[in-house]
Amino acid sequence: MTLQMQKFTTLTSVAAPIMRVNIDTDAIIPSREMKGVTKEGLSVGMFANWRYTNVDARVEDPDFILNQASYRDVEILLSGENFGCGSSREHAVWALKEWGIRCVIAPSFGTIFYGNCVRNGILPVVLQEDTVKAFAKAMEDSNGTAALQIDLPDQNVMGPDGGQYTFDIAPADKEMLVEGLDPIGLTLKRDAEILAFQVRDKTARPWVYL
């Protein structure tokens, strides 16, 4: 069986700058907002400690960028280095996705978060800090009307001023996003290789096999 995931090819959107460094997954989705054994219903808890002045009553803080009219429907986030560090909770990615975020641009990412993005149709883009800051400034200067254009097949981001910025992505990650591939389905096609490894390995490392 092969499941189809959401494909990512190109995207044009305003980007919301949340330019702190080390934004951890506890901040993206606080533990207390993970209320069920599910991947759904998480966007209401996204950034809960920053987004609400009263978390329990869900009173929005008008100062938080995603609560502002021009940034409410953005599909891109801009952030500082090490975005998504901390807990492995994939709920952070599920919350962003449910909210409508399709791409995060930052100078670096937490490794587990990065992998979780790719497996959920969200594109993590690593760009130089100066570039991300310039995008953030363009957004602020235009009151959230300037757009970024992302082209994953070309590995390119076009800034509001027409500047082109290429980014690196591992070929396998790119393919997974562009094709909307289900990695489990792909790997299961290699069942014979896995089995052959296991047969060899049982002789070489018998202590591994409980």
Partner: peptide, 11 residues
């Protein structure tokens, strides 16, 4: 993540 967890469990 949990999705990679599924991958490891299944494959």
């Amino acid at each position: 993540g949990s999705t990679e967890g599924e991958h490891a469990l299944a494959t």
